[in-house]
């Protein structure tokens, strides 16, 4: 079944509704998922329907275009307990997309459902739920995230240590990032142990959380070092992590990283946002740091 006959691109629909005269369908963004166009009404109707393909896409769409309307949020929360959409391996695709979308809608009523989702048998649902809990700024999620993190630890002769797993059984990277975002300072001793996790991405997530929780540049520098690594995917991950924590000292290294300019620009934008938080109205003066970051961004356009 095709999407409804609707020519407006979704981004344009939501962001440009005050500028209809200047509507430019051809300058649409590079929309993931094939860019099938929906309206808010059809997305909600699709999510209420029974077609699993349409429900899956509608859940993604509502998050992507930040439709934080009560009806959408209620349906997405309901979808966290969906039993109909299953993969042959037992996964829950709709729950995954619903959990991801709820992180973007900035509504704390999603927190209990997401916390419950951390117990889901599907690894990707747990990953999406942890990530979204980290975005919703509700500290009530900290204890359950902490408990999930320490399933990766065992108490040995010298205290707590990492359990060696060939494949991580929990989405430790997402859990660590959520704990960092939520300011879980009591979890620092456990988070620190994950700096030595065998999966490099998990180490970065631990460094990112440690920097957020301690502001110790040691951990920012760990991520700067990662920018010079030999694996492009890991360099991209480190760029995203540095942007998320706004580690200013990384600015030059970010600009010089061998990776796509678009990712470097997003990372530098993250740094810039931390720099301009201190701007004082009404005649803003820009800090030297902010100017430095903007000049680097200009050079990457």
């Amino acid at each position: 079944m095709k999407a409804p006959n609707q020519i407006l691109m979704p981004t344009t629909l939501l962001k440009m509704n005050s500028n209809k005269d200047n509507f430019q369908p051809s300058s649409s963004s590079e929309t993931p998922g094939g860019g099938e166009s929906l309206t808010i009404e059809t997305a909600i109707a699709n999510l209420e329907g029974t077609d699993s393909g349409l429900r899956f896409y509608a859940a993604w769409w509502l998050g992507r275009f930040k439709v934080n309307e009560p009806r959408a949020i209620a349906l997405l929360i309901e979808a966290l307990a969906d039993e109909l959409d299953r993969t042959p391996e037992g996964g829950y695709p709709l729950r995954r997309n619903a959990a991801r979308a709820l992180g973007k809608l900035n509504d704390k009523s999603a927190v209990p459902g997401l916390v419950k989702s951390l117990e889901c048998s599907d690894y990707y649902v747990r990953e999406a739920a942890a990530e979204s809990l980290g975005m919703l700024s509700d500290a009530s999620a900290i204890p359950v995230l902490h408990n999930l993190l320490i399933t990766g630890l065992i108490t040995g002769l010298t205290g707590e240590e990492l359990i060696i797993e060939s494949t991580p059984s929990q989405p430790y990277d997402a859990i660590l990032e959520a704990l960092g975002n939520l300011g879980a300072t009591n979890s620092v001793p456990q988070i620190e142990l994950f700096l030595k996790h065998p999966v490099e991405r998990v180490q970065y997530s631990a460094a990112r959380a440690m920097y957020q929780l301690t502001k110790n540049s040691l951990y920012g520098e760990r991520l700067v070092k990662a920018l010079a690594g030999s694996n492009l995917q890991l360099r991209r991950t480190a760029l995203a992590d540095l942007g998320a924590i706004g580690y200013f000292e990384a600015a030059d290294a970010i600009a010089q990283t061998l990776a796509e300019n678009s990712l470097k620009l997003i990372a530098l934008k993250g740094l810039l946002e931390y720099q301009v938080r201190e701007l004082t109205p009404p005649t803003p003066t820009l800090s030297d740091g902010a100017i430095k970051v903007m000049k680097l961004m200009d050079s990457l356009l």
Binding site: A128, M135, A240, P281
Partner: peptide, 25 residues
Amino acid sequence: MPNMKKLAESDDEKEVPSRGSGRRS
């Protein structure tokens, strides 16, 4: 120069770069 609005006042949501969840390393 007209009167300026406070530069940092808009509550725009910070878009944190996604690392494309759903892949296990």
